[in-house]
């Protein structure tokens, strides 16, 4: 046992009495090994990863909806004529090509916003981590 040189003389009785207190039972189980701990740790890690992914997807979806809404609202408020002319343009394209161009336009815009939001979230996360 280590010899503790810090012990003031008036502490000896207390030290002896404290050492006479019986050890708490039960002791650490014999299967307390890194192997068993590591398996729990791996499961924890997987759960954390899944949770992080779910949060990321929810974040992207929320950002996208907010961004599309904000852009639409902004254009509508700032320049109703632009909204109208955009509507006309989309209608013209639709009538000229007879295709589903407006749907393609909307999809492409959403995809761009999604990618942007994802990159932004990714950057924010990795920046915070390091």
């Amino acid at each position: 046992m280590k010899h503790n040189t810090d012990t003031p003389r008036h502490d000896c009785n207390l030290r002896n009495a404290l050492k006479a207190i019986p050890e708490p039972e039960p002791r650490l189980p014999s299967n307390f090994t890194w192997r068993t701990m590591q398996s729990v740790y791996t499961v924890d890690l997987q759960q954390k990863r899944r949770r992080r992914l779910a949060i990321r997807i929810a974040g992207i979806a929320a950002c996208s909806v907010a961004a599309i809404g904000a852009i639409g609202l902004g254009i509508w408020l700032a320049a109703p004529s632009v909204t109208a002319s955009m509507g006309d343009l989309v209608a013209d394209i639709h009538s000229a090509t007879g295709s589903t161009s407006p749907v393609l336009w909307a999809t492409a815009t959403s995809a761009l916003i999604l990618i942007g939001a994802e990159r932004l979230l990714h950057y924010t996360y990795s920046h915070r981590k390091h």
Partner: peptide
């Protein structure tokens, strides 16, 4: 503190 100092004899 009591455990470390009195029971396990760690230096201060």
């Amino acid at each position: 503190l009591v455990t470390l100092y009195y029971m396990e004899d760690h230096p201060i």
